[in-house]
């Protein structure tokens, strides 16, 4: 694919960003990260308080990507089969089976939106784990494939009642976990409250230009990006050092206030996690019109691709977000390149 095509796709990506930025204001960084994730073909988990716009953000992206879109709400009584099929008694009085959200769009499924994922049971997480990793599902004696599917999920960490912690194996399937926080800008906060266009979410999302991207070409183009954007030996060594530092931060002089660093990390970033980080870094380089990955590209995606993969001692899990942020910042500050 020529540089012209790379530039053409970049324009599409920037258009998508621009469209989403119109409806979700003050979230430029999360929007850039989600765009990066789409082109890196990675699943996205949004984390934040209630009512900060996580669902609106994902719906806006879904509209821009195009393709089949399915959505399911996480509830405590949701079972894995609810994602696959739906049974009911028909007008003829006989039981009928219809496809569930995962199967309904077939191979055209481009976005599977799992709202409040942490309300679902571990059984559901387990099913999702396979679908996310392999983009396939066995049902009705048939193997179903979802080659274009990206899972968007959100969770809030405020409520702990009737929720289930997403296991680290499931978290690791997500390319990024992106925190969504309320913007600090007073003008934006005022607009969110008083501007009536933000009151009707459906109407707001409908203003996003549909099908900005061609969902069924994203996989192929993603490969092009990964093959076109180079990573020098110095960059590889730098990434490797970052990886090692996530496992043994103390070796790199990284400390977190109020934390026993010898006990903190049970498991650092996984190889899958690091490869996802490099995929995202390549996309970030492409988005910034570069032909090679720089440390800056890694920094841009380091927190969002690594923080949720770290496994801490249970005693520190309650402070996971804060500790992970401080530790990863310490790693970036400690590891040099070249």
């Amino acid at each position: 694919m020529s540089d012209v095509q790379l530039a053409d796709w970049r324009n599409h990506a920037l258009t998508l960003e621009s469209e989403v930025n119109k409806v979700v204001v003050g979230q430029q960084t999360p929007i850039r990260l989600i765009t990066t994730s789409i082109f890196a073909r990675g699943h996205v988990l949004l984390e934040g308080d209630v009512g900060v716009g996580k669902t609106t953000l994902l719906r806006a992206f879904t509209r821009g990507i195009g393709g089949g879109y399915q959505r399911i709400e996480g509830t405590i009584d949701l079972m894995p089969n609810d994602l696959v099929y739906h049974t009911y008694l028909g007008e003829d009085g006989k039981p009928h089976v219809s496809p569930g959200p995962l199967l309904m769009s077939g191979e055209n499924l481009s976005v599977f939106f799992f709202n409040e994922i942490n309300r679902a049971r571990p059984q559901v997480h387990s099913l999702l784990l396979r679908v996310m990793a392999e983009r396939s599902l066995s049902a009705f004696n048939t193997e179903h494939y979802f080659p274009h599917m990206i899972v968007f999920a959100d969770r809030n960490q405020v409520e702990k009642e009737e929720t289930f912690e997403i296991p680290s194996a499931a978290r690791d399937r997500f390319m990024m976990e992106i925190p969504i926080v309320v913007p600090n800008d007073d003008a934006i906060m005022e607009a969110l409250v008083f501007d009536t266009k933000f009151h009707n979410v459906d109407a707001l999302v409908d203003t996003v230009k549909p099908d900005v991207l061609q969902f069924d070409e994203l996989n192929a183009f993603s490969s092009v990006i990964q093959n076109s954007i180079e990573a020098s030996d110095t960059l590889k060594k730098y990434a490797l050092n970052l990886w090692k530092a996530t496992k043994t931060p103390l070796d790199y002089g990284v400390k977190v206030s109020g934390v026993d660093m010898n006990r903190l990390v049970l498991s650092g970033a996984s190889p899958r996690g690091m490869s996802m980080m490099l995929r995202a870094a390549r996309v970030n380089a492409w988005m910034n019109n570069r032909n090679a990955v720089l440390p800056d590209d890694i920094h841009a995606v380091f927190h969002s691709t690594i923080a949720h993969r770290l496994v801490f001692s249970p005693v520190y899990e309650m402070r996971r977000t804060e500790i992970a942020r401080e530790m990863l910042s310490g790693i970036v500050n400690a590891v040099s390149a070249p």
């Binding site: 180079e230 020098s232 960059l235 032909n291 090679a292 070249p338």
Partner: peptide
């Protein structure tokens, strides 16, 4: 200069 030498020879 560092970018050109260490990371992106075409820059």
């Amino acid at each position: 200069l560092s970018r050109q030498v260490y990371f992106e020879p075409n820059a």
